[in-house]
Computed example of a mutant assay.
Amino acid sequence: MRARSRYVAAALVAALMTMSAAACGGREETHEDGFTVGLLLPGRVLPRWEQFDKPLIEKRLKELCPRCRTAYANADNDPARQRQQMTSMITKGVRVLILDAADPKVLRSSIEEAHQAGVPVVAYDRLAEGPISGFVSFDGAQVGRLQAEYLLRAMGDRAHGGNVVMMNGDPTDRNAAWFKKGALSVLTGKVKIDRSYDTQGWSTENAHANMSAALAAQNPERIDGVLAVNDAVAAGVISAFKGAHVRTLPPVTGQDADLDAVRRIVKGEQYMTVYKPFRAEADAAAAMAVTLGRGGDPRKLATTVIDSPTTKHIPSVLLTPRAVTAGTIEQTLVKDGVYTLDRICTRQLQGLPPCPGSRAPVGSQARDRPASRNGGDVRSAPRP
Rank of each mutant, 00 (worst) to 15 (best):
E205T: 12
H208L: 15
N210V: 06
N210H: 14
N210A: 14
S212G: 14
A213L: 12
A213N: 14
A213W: 08
L215D: 00
L215C: 02
L215G: 02
A216N: 09
A216C: 04
A216M: 12
Q218F: 03
N219S: 14
E221V: 11
R222C: 07
I223W: 03
D224L: 14
D224F: 13
V226T: 00
V229M: 04
N230D: 15
D231C: 05
D231L: 00
A232C: 04
V233I: 15
V233A: 03
V233Y: 06
A234W: 05
A235T: 10
G236D: 00
G236R: 00
G236Q: 10
I238K: 01
I238G: 01
F241K: 03
G243C: 05
A244G: 10
V246A: 06
V246G: 05
R247D: 14
T248E: 15
T248D: 15
L249H: 07
P250E: 04
P250G: 05
P250S: 08
P250T: 05
P251V: 09
V252A: 05
V252T: 07
T253P: 07
G254H: 01
Q255Y: 11
A257I: 05
A257M: 09
D258T: 09
D258K: 02
D258Y: 01
L259G: 09
R263A: 01
R263P: 08
R264F: 02
R264K: 09
R264P: 02
R264Y: 06
I265G: 01
I265H: 02
K267W: 12
G268T: 12
E269I: 06
E269S: 13
Q270D: 05
Q270W: 02
Q270L: 04
M272T: 12
M272N: 13
T273S: 15
V274M: 08
Y275D: 08
K276I: 08
K276V: 04
K276P: 07
P277K: 06
R279K: 15
A280L: 11
A282T: 01
A282K: 04
A284P: 06
A284H: 04
A286N: 06
A287N: 10
A287Q: 06
A289M: 11
V290Y: 05
V290M: 08
L292Y: 06
L292Q: 06
G293P: 02
R294N: 15
R294I: 00
G296K: 12
G296R: 11
G296H: 13
P298H: 07
P298Y: 13
R299Y: 13
R299Q: 15
L301R: 00
A302I: 07
V305I: 10
V305K: 13
I306E: 14
D307R: 09
S308F: 01
P309S: 13
H313K: 15
H313T: 13
H313G: 11
H313L: 04
P315F: 15
S316K: 11
S316L: 11
V317Y: 07
V317I: 12
V317F: 12
L318H: 07
L318K: 02
T320W: 09
R322A: 09
R322C: 03
A323V: 15
V324Y: 02
V324E: 08
V324N: 09
V324F: 00
V324H: 07
T325S: 11
A326V: 07
A326E: 09
G327T: 04
T328E: 13
I329D: 11
E330Q: 15
Q331W: 01
Q331Y: 01
T332N: 13
L333E: 01
L333F: 01
V334C: 09
K335C: 08
D336C: 06
G337P: 03
G337R: 07
G337D: 02
V338W: 00
Y339T: 04
